[in-house]
Amino acid sequence: MTEHLDRRHALSCMAWAGGGLLWTVVGGVPRAGLIGSAQAAGTGFSFAQVSDSHIGFAKEANMDTKGTLESGMALVKARKPAFVLHTGDVSHLSKPAEFDAAAAILGASGFDTHYVPGEHDVLDEKGTAPFIERFQKRQTQGTPGGAYYSFDANGVHFVGLNNVVNLKAGGLGNLGAAQIAWLEKDLAGRTASTPIVVFAHIPLWTVYEAWGWGTDDSSKALALLARFGSVTVLNGHIHQVLQKVEGNVAFHSARSTAFPQPAPGSAPSPGPMKVDAGKLRSVLGVASVTVVPGQGPLAIVDTPLGA
């Protein structure tokens, strides 16, 4: 199930911004704006989303992923969000030095940061353990080894999921039965009017199956979320903004702070897009995105990226 992607959309995805997203909850409906844009302004409770910092990557698409993450965090800081969500691929190869560098930059921002792992963060022989130890220790005590957890802030229930382990040949992202059982328990007893924000690395809707951009068993998680009036699903992994609203669920994928990836199907592979280095930074904060509820099924909202 892939929506038609026109030329304008493909071009819009080429304009990349290395900043994070600022989310504002107004009347229970989270709205997103690219940090630095005037449209991101709001008076409600806000939080930022930073994703795919890929610390350790140093190739033509971006030789300075530390620098671009620092730029992104400077923009986040200027917006004064309540906290930051990092939707995975903190590191490029799960190396301790990469975790150190990322933790130093993200820690220096002073924000409480909630992480979920990307597939690049669990490459160590010990799987998720080093990532949990470094980035999730305080949250995942009740779910040892699972790298998933939940917390509440300002009346919003946040659920961090892990869909990057136990991947199967030919498959997509994977939540697994244990995590879905945990989610069912986590959501039980919460009123349907509680706004829910789910954050996970790989998109929880099928963006582009041929590139593995989706999660095999996400429908089971979404079924558990169906009774809630406001559900916002935040993902990373695909290094571009794509949105879709289906019923009460708004799906949104964030940009990377490291390098852009092509629009679904627009290139031979989902590998890093190489853009002019000057262009890479010049587009920071010039675009805005808004989660628009009520667009009906199958609506991926085209993202206006910059003037």
Partner: peptide, 12 residues
Amino acid sequence: FPYFCGLHPHMQ
């Protein structure tokens, strides 16, 4: 012996 990429399991 079928195999796949552990990071990108659509690669087989």
